[in-house]
């Protein structure tokens, strides 16, 4: 599992590092409030300063998502979103100038076929996959397919990860390591635990792969705080919640633009 091989996520994180800042990674699920609406929203993320867009795939049983993302996914599925739509969104993000990475529950990849999913993702211009319910122990097919298609592999680590597990998981990662800031599901939190900083330090001891922090980040201040020690700041539920507000879609997209702009300032304020 080479960590020196060129990776699209690695390149953008390296570029941000050269600029003396952390990267901003924004998550939205495809199909919410509609396929077109979600693609518009992802373009707004890119225009307002997201370096990487996590293109989320709605799933019927999202066990690591909190209520905000669950409801958005359920609404997207009820409105008829399909896995095929994900590849359309990936291409749109790439065309808008950011690096798209798909975040998906594993059964949706299995059903399409790991090889077919990887081929379609490469063709659409995606950088790779974030897999919240797949651990490297079960990922032989994906490790092989990602090699064949030059895709990045982002696995998660958590504060509960033992030293052995950190070693095993990070050695399978390419692009970045997704560090869960706290034990729990996605959602907005008032503070991001000191666990996050400790976890990043532990990851740095075992790998040179960049580390991004996710779960619970919602404000410019939190983004700045995390940017001081992590390579990237991942924001999800806070963006989804903004998109879910009342009012016309155009107004909500403007609210999304303001929040993203704030967060983009945050990742530039971290003292490194």
């Amino acid at each position: 599992m080479s960590t020196t091989q060129a990776t699209r996520l690695g390149e953008v994180l390296e570029r941000c590092r050269a600029e003396g800042r952390a990267a901003l990674v924004g998550y939205l699920p495809v199909g919410y409030p509609s396929v077109e609406g979600s693609i518009e929203a992802m373009k707004v993320l890119v225009e307002a300063g997201c370096d990487i867009v996590e293109v989320g795939v709605a799933y019927s049983d999202p066990v690591i998502d909190g209520p905000v993302n669950q409801e958005a996914m359920a609404a997207a599925l009820a409105a008829g979103v399909r896995v095929d739509d994900v590849f359309t969104a990936v291409s749109a993000v790439r065309d808008a100038g950011a690096v798209p990475v798909v975040m998906t529950y594993w059964n949706l990849v299995l059903k399409r076929g790991v090889e077919a999913f990887a081929a379609d993702l490469e063709a659409a211009g995606g950088a790779g996959l974030i897999t919240p319910d797949l651990v490297p122990d079960e990922a032989d097919d994906w490790l092989a397919a990602s090699e064949r298609h030059g895709l990045d592999r982002v696995f998660l680590v958590a504060p509960s990860s033992t030293p052995d597990r950190l070693e095993k998981v990070t050695s399978a990662c390419r692009g970045f390591v997704y560090a869960a800031s706290t034990m729990g599901v996605t959602g907005v939190r008032t503070s991001v635990d000191t666990d996050a900083r400790t976890l990043v330090e532990r990851v740095r001891e075992v790998t040179d792969v960049p580390v991004c922090i996710g779960l619970g980040v919602s404000t410019r201040e939190q983004a700045a705080e995390i940017a001081a020690y992590a390579d990237g700041v991942i924001v999800g539920s806070a963006l989804v919640r903004t998109l879910a507000g009342d009012g016309e879609l155009s107004e909500r997209l403007e609210a999304l633009r303001s929040l993203t702009t704030e967060l983009a300032q945050g990742v530039r304020e971290g003292k490194r």
């Binding site: 690591i64 079960e138 033992t162």
Partner: peptide, 14 residues
């Protein structure tokens, strides 16, 4: 079978 879970649960399963 297998173990298709978030990494956070792996230590508890072990």
């Amino acid at each position: 079978g297998g173990r298709y879970v978030p990494e956070a649960l792996v230590p508890a399963l072990e």
